[in-house]
Nucleic acid binder design. Sequence first.
RNA 1: UCCUCGGUAGCUCAAUCGGCAGAGCGGGCGGCUGUUAACCGCUAGGUUGCAGGUUCGAGUCCUGCCCGAGGAGCCA
Length: 452
Amino acid sequence: MRSEAMSTPIHVADIAQYEGQEVTIRGWVYNRTDKGKLTFLLVRDGSGFAQCVAFKGDLDEATFDAIRRIPQESSVVVSGTVRADKRAPGLPGGYEIGISGFEVVQAAALDYPMALKEHGVDFALDNRHLWIRMPSQWAVLRIRATIMRAIQDFLDGQGFLRVDTPILTPAAAEGTTTLFETPYFDEGFAYLSQSGQLYNEANIFAFGKVYCFGPTFRAEKSKTRRHLTEFWMVEPEIAFCDLDQLMDLEEEFVTFIVQRVLETNRRELEYLGRDLSKLEAIKPPFPRISYDEAVQMIKEIQAETDDPEKKALLNIEWGQDFGSPHETELTKRFDKPVMVYGYPTAAKAFYMEPWPGRPEVCKSVDMLAPEGYGEIIGGSERMSDHDLLLQRIHEHGLPEEAFKWYLDLRKYGSVPHSGFGLGVERTVAWICGIEHIRETIPYPRTIKRVYP
RNA sequence: UCCUCGGUAGCUCAAUCGGCAGAGCGGGCGGCUGUUAACCGCUAGGUUGCAGGUUCGAGUCCUGCCCGAGGAGCCA
């Protein structure tokens, strides 16, 4: 056995740079295949997966025997010579290590529960702490990290200042959604934030362009593949910005994120089987259609549908918000995210600016991802007039006292301003092309799950 | 909260009309120099979600309950 000190410690991701050299990797045995006098170990080290090959004739008996018996997921230190071989699986793959030295850090217990095949969702999630070792989950979470980074790089590069907003907040800001409640000393109760937007609006008057980026909580009993009770949202807010400028920003932002993932994680996308051409097509301009046009399109789609069940689901009258079936059918007509603007005022939050000359419509915009992934962005131009905002607060039955500071923003130098929120997990699901949003966050929280 | 589907070995699933509880993977033992979730032989492994009921006999039929899934509503 050659001394480990003689070989270079490397990360599997860089394996191609070391062809012909003696190297050492430290990691875990993802899979083992025995073949007579030959044993293949697929070893992962966090940066990638590399095949290591042991040939009985090259090793002393004790070492070969140790390799042959090493249980799946054991932690190991492997040294050997890197060689190119087209047959070698792995990520990146195409290179393998001919084993000359082998050291066991810990032999894993034999009852490792994750098989190298499909698992039911419930079992996989019960074992999420182990599931993340699988290459599919590893790929998704690496792409998620790229997206988190791209979000910050884009906004920082555009002159936005990250200003953090509180997670513990006073009573419901919008009064529409159910919030998680927690006892708060002598103050009664505090609530986990569902949005940093109202604080962002205060922050732009100090910093111009800001964003907040953090976890968000919704206590709604939503049981779908698009919902989590804890999810991440980035919310930019911009002073002196109208709805058109907001849509310009949104499409540049989403394009930047998608292109960054294509540059950084091509390998991961390919492993996931993502159709890269669909992502490469994501470039401005994105289609922009009014709510009025969208309703018209949905009615046309409904008329063309033969399936009576689908026909019923697509029922819509002007004034109603879109449900998931409407969004799905609408986005199937486009190969880029589509921006739907000008929703009915009654269907949206109280703080949205009315459409000039059409008070029944407001200056809101939702961005719907293609391929049926649904809404990834909700945004609007915010109401800038103090008296109208106060009227809306009353109309919505909201406590004026709680909004005193928010109304102040319209007293001391009010300006037209706009902002939006982008849901990170839905964006990850769309870019990765995966079905369940719960695979896009390391430890998903749903109505039925807070473990592990 | 409502609708639909599901719960059988550690995992993924099968079990015909109500008639002996099965397979593959994973584990153990053995074989094979190129495996890609290898393959071949042998082997261990069961409170069929829970509680009742019908029946000579229930994984299967009936009643109630528990748990899970994804869809509606709500939203990102």
